[in-house]
């Protein structure tokens, strides 16, 4: 009989909640739940940020890779496009957290910084794929709304995970 310690049980539950929340955010995003273009926040990005920032020990490149693939598949973008952007986003935040600060500070600065970086990465990627310089204001507005939604999402997520802020 398999006996799990409390810590292991807790880890499994948190991992399960992480998967559910990321999947839910991806589905909401990809199926344009709100029909509010360009004011449509990217829930995948802010949910991923939440997990990476507060529970980095549960996140891994494997999870981010498959999340990105799912985003591409459901959203109809080129396979690998969002995967690469999400990998860069995750790696950037993790690297910063480990090498610059382990404390939960500069949260907004990291969120703003990483959002700007992923916007640039996405535009560069589109330029590389389509051989066209592509810039439109819609993604910028969308990400701005993501940042506005972030505090609410964070509260909901802390409630969902059962942790104190």
């Amino acid at each position: 009989m398999l006996i799990l310690s409390d810590l292991t049980k807790k880890n499994i539950i948190i991992k399960f909640k992480m998967m559910v929340s990321l999947l839910f955010a991806t589905l909401i995003d990809q199926y344009s739940f709100f029909h509010f273009l360009p004011f449509q926040p990217s829930f995948t990005i802010i949910t991923l940020f939440y997990w990476t920032f507060f529970f980095e020990y549960h996140m891994s490149f494997v999870v981010v890779f498959f999340l990105g693939l799912l985003t591409d598949i459901l959203g109809g973008s080129l396979l690998g496009e969002n995967t690469f952007v999400l990998l860069a986003f995750y790696a950037g935040i993790s690297f910063y957290r480990e090498y610059f600060t382990e404390r939960s500070q500069y949260e907004w600065a990291i969120l703003w910084g990483s959002t700007i970086v992923i916007l640039c990465v996405h535009f560069l990627l589109i330029w590389a794929i389509h051989k066209r310089i592509f810039f439109c204001i819609d993604p910028v507005i969308g990400h701005f709304f993501s940042l506005l939604f972030y505090p609410s999402l964070k509260r909901v997520m802390f409630w969902f995970v059962g942790e104190e802020e």
Binding site: S60, F61, V62, V64, F65, G68, L69, L78, L79, G80, E81, T83, F84, L87, A91, L125, I129
Partner: peptide, 21 residues
């Protein structure tokens, strides 16, 4: 290990992107 994983997944993603494109 994690650095290797990052490089591995980044290369895999770029390969997938190339195939899809």
């Amino acid at each position: 290990k994690q650095l290797i994983l990052f490089v591995f997944f980044a290369i895999t993603t770029l390969f997938i992107l190339y195939v899809a494109a």
